[in-house]
Design a binder for these strands. Structure first.
Lengths: 229, 229
DNA sequence: TGAATAGTGTCTCTAAGACATTATTAT
DNA sequence: ATAATAATGTCTTAGAGACACTATTCA
């Protein structure tokens, strides 16, 4: 019994193996709200539903590299930095065959969001404070266990927003913009003086001395993340 | 190009696939310190090094079920509740072949720790506050990327110790024991009145009214986690 | 000068650290 | 009683929420 288990471990090539895929949760801000890149399925299973862009991991490809490839080939997003969220491996999560998927999160800054070219069968859906994915106010049905993946990704993002917020902003940003990102991700409003105090006392911001341009009234100072000191 | 990627996704059975394994980080308290169950490797690669108990995932087996099977077959631990930590998939993490592994954490209460029967080639190593795994004061070499797995598991455990601590204690425990668990995991001492206040105000503890027995001096009250209300 | 937003002063409240004190038990 | 630990009172400090106030810019 234990011997059998050992042999199984030592020579696994003779056994059926699950396929391993990645699914990408690409998030950015769109009109001040958290938005998510989706692909529509045009055949069963889950035909007509929306799904996360994904693909199988190559035999000589790391999971991160697979996520980068999927985002490049399917959404034209190059140079992104996927971060692992969780591995989903329920036996019946795909009705066709056994597929274990690793979920990756990618945060898109405003320049990438503005340059996003949505191909046929793709959309930008919004995520409301409760975690519901919808388009034009209509909740979307997501294929497979992708609603669980999105929900867990949102929870993780909220828990780490202090560090993650910068990836959703341009290089130079105002404290108001930083607060707006926190609020959009957390789904609630924050206290202004307390937020500014906390951010400035963390020591990861550096005021540039420059002011934002093109505003009708008093312009705010532009900050950058972590200067060098 | 995109068509090729699509076909690859749709019929992956024709492609080489990585093997998928689980590795288990089984943690408990031993003589007041955080301890870890390890297995020695008796052949290359990493012969003579210690490794986490692990095994391959069956084609009709969930990752959690695989982790439970590994712990049952290799360590006699039944009825545990593995929690996923992270998926490690670097292409060269195993020199023999491509293996993606999912790390699972299991917390053992004192009864399980006392009943642990170490088989040949197994040991209980301690984890010091810096995250170093050692035995009798000697740092141990861990096979593959298992030191990274242990380190990340420890970081995650520390971040969630408020909820996880109960799994390392018996059903009934004193506040002193609860604090000792927090301190062992966090690797630092905590302030007693503040700790007690915080725990009691969380509302997840319920005093039983019973006192611990067999102590030379004033016995402490026994608490349980979350009564029913 | 006024509108509108940037940025700050300050009060309050909550929670943690520190330290001393009281309470309880076995010997 | 005494030793030893359980449990608590209270002072101080740090940080967040609330709200009003001052500062700055453009039209």
């Amino acid at each position: 019994m234990e011997e059998a288990a050992f042999l199984r471990q030592y020579d696994p090539t003779g056994y059926d193996r699950p396929s391993v895929a990645v699914d990408c949760v690409a998030l950015g801000l769109w009109e001040g709200r958290l938005a998510l890149l989706l692909t529509s399925r045009d055949r069963p299973p889950f035909a007509g539903d929306w799904s996360l862009p994904g693909g199988f991991i190559g035999i000589a490809e790391s999971p991160e590299a697979a996520a980068e490839r999927v985002l490049r080939d399917k959404a034209g997003l190059a140079g992104v930095a996927p971060e692992q969220v969780h591995c989903f491996g329920a036996v019946d999560r795909d009705p066709r065959m056994r597929i274990i998927t690793i979920a990756y999160r990618v945060l898109l800054d405003p320049a990438r969001m503005a340059a996003l070219f949505l191909r046929a069968g793709q959309c930008l859906a919004t995520i409301d404070p409760a975690g519901t994915v919808s388009q034009d106010g209509q909740p979307l049905r997501l294929a497979f266990d992708h609603d669980r993946i999105v929900r867990l990704t949102l929870d993780r993002l909220r828990a780490t927003i202090d560090d993650a917020a910068f990836a959703l902003l341009p290089d130079r940003f105002t404290l108001r913009e930083l607060q707006a990102v926190h609020e959009a991700v957390l789904g609630r409003s924050l206290n202004k003086p307390a937020f500014r105090r906390r951010m400035l006392e963390r020591g990861v911001l550096h005021g540039t001395g420059d002011l934002e341009a093109g505003r009708a009234f008093r312009p705010a100072e532009l900050y950058v993340q972590r200067p060098k000191g």
